[in-house]
Computed example of a mutant assay.
Amino acid sequence: MNRIRCAVSAALLFLSACAPEPAPELNVMTFNMRYDNPEDGENNWRFRRERVARAIEMNRADVFGAQELLLNQLNDLKELLPGYAEVGVGREDGAGAGEFNPVFYRTDRFELLDWGTFWLSETPEKAGSKGWDGACERLATWTVLRDRAGREIFFINTHLDHVGEVARREGVTLLLRRIDSLCGGRPVVLTGDFNAEPESEVITHVVGSGRLRHTREAAAERSGTAWSFSDFGQIPEGERQLIDYVFVDDGFDVRSYRVLPDTLDGGFLSDHAPVLVKLQYYDTKR
């Protein structure tokens, strides 16, 4: 009997050793952090920055796209999040002026292979260019990241215009075109504040071709609020909108989707709530 038990144990150990490792998971976040506005009073950035950093660390974001960061905010986060590196430029001049849409990634998990920026305009390589009927300069920051196991992903982060309908529509067209030309067959993640609700033409345009999926609809599990923008709680809850998104292609299985609380430790994180998505690679190595 002992010999049978030993044989069974040996067989199980052999099968366990031979079984392929499960594909790893990836925690992705999109987070509009609200620009440093002196008129925000108790919700000004200087009162929120530590909470923002804690929320990122508590939720173990592996890579995240941020929106609306001014240079001083970017520098604060670089100091508060020493385990992360980032890439991005200011939208007004391609250097340090104006809002950034940076991509942050955990340095213990990823190395940066490539990155770049383009403006959502008729002249996407021209720094500071406004597009179509847009009220502001808008840009996208893209990266190619490789994890320690050799898997590579294409991650792109953006912020669509809050006024221009044509700018949002044409901006999406440009984003989809650039994703196809830049991703190199790698799994794709697109994050951002799209200033549009899920039923809008803007979001229908993103998912309409079947190239990308809204993670909320694709997730095995969903939790959190149905909205992501509360304007620091000033909008009545029934009127709040979902305008922040994580989209992925078929390189990932969406394990869970969650709109996180927009408060922590009794104070607001931002006028937006962060969105956290847990992804799993479909293949053990891409």
Rank of each mutant, 00 (worst) to 15 (best):
A140G: 10
L70K: 09
V189D: 00
Q73F: 03
E197N: 07
A140M: 11
A97I: 02
F194R: 06
A95C: 04
R169K: 14
E125P: 10
L160N: 11
D161T: 03
A85W: 00
D193I: 02
A97E: 09
T107C: 07
V188R: 03
F104N: 01
C136D: 05
P82E: 02
R109A: 03
L190Q: 06
R148M: 02
G94A: 13
L112S: 08
T143P: 13
G150H: 06
P82T: 04
R151G: 10
G150P: 04
I156K: 06
D62I: 12
A135E: 05
G131V: 02
H162C: 13
S181C: 07
E86D: 08
E99Q: 09
V63K: 02
G185S: 02
E122Q: 11
A85H: 08
T173K: 01
G134Q: 13
W115R: 04
F194H: 09
V189Y: 05
Y84N: 01
W132G: 11
N72K: 12
G98E: 02
V144R: 15
T158A: 04
V103K: 06
T123R: 05
S129N: 04
R109I: 02
E197K: 11
D161P: 06
A140I: 11
G185E: 13
E170D: 13
A95V: 07
C183M: 04
G94E: 15
T143C: 11
L190W: 01
F100Q: 00
T117H: 08
E79N: 13
G131Q: 08
D133M: 05
L112R: 11
G96Q: 15
V172E: 12
Q73N: 08
V188I: 07
H159C: 09
G184D: 06
D147M: 08
S121E: 00
E68N: 09
V87E: 08
R146W: 13
Y105D: 00
E137Y: 14
L182E: 10
Q67M: 07
G150N: 11
E68M: 05
N72E: 11
L112M: 13
L81S: 04
G185K: 00
L120T: 10
V87R: 08
I153M: 11
Y84E: 00
Y84I: 00
S121K: 01
R168M: 13
R169C: 13
Q73L: 03
G185T: 05
F118A: 06
F118P: 07
R186A: 05
P102S: 01
F118S: 07
F118I: 06
T173C: 08
H162Q: 12
V63C: 06
G94T: 14
E79S: 12
T123G: 03
W132R: 02
E125I: 06
C183V: 12
G94I: 15
V163I: 15
C136A: 07
E152V: 11
L139H: 08
L174K: 04
L70W: 00
W132C: 12
E86A: 14
W115G: 01
N72S: 15
F118T: 09
G184A: 01
D161M: 04
G128K: 14
G171E: 07
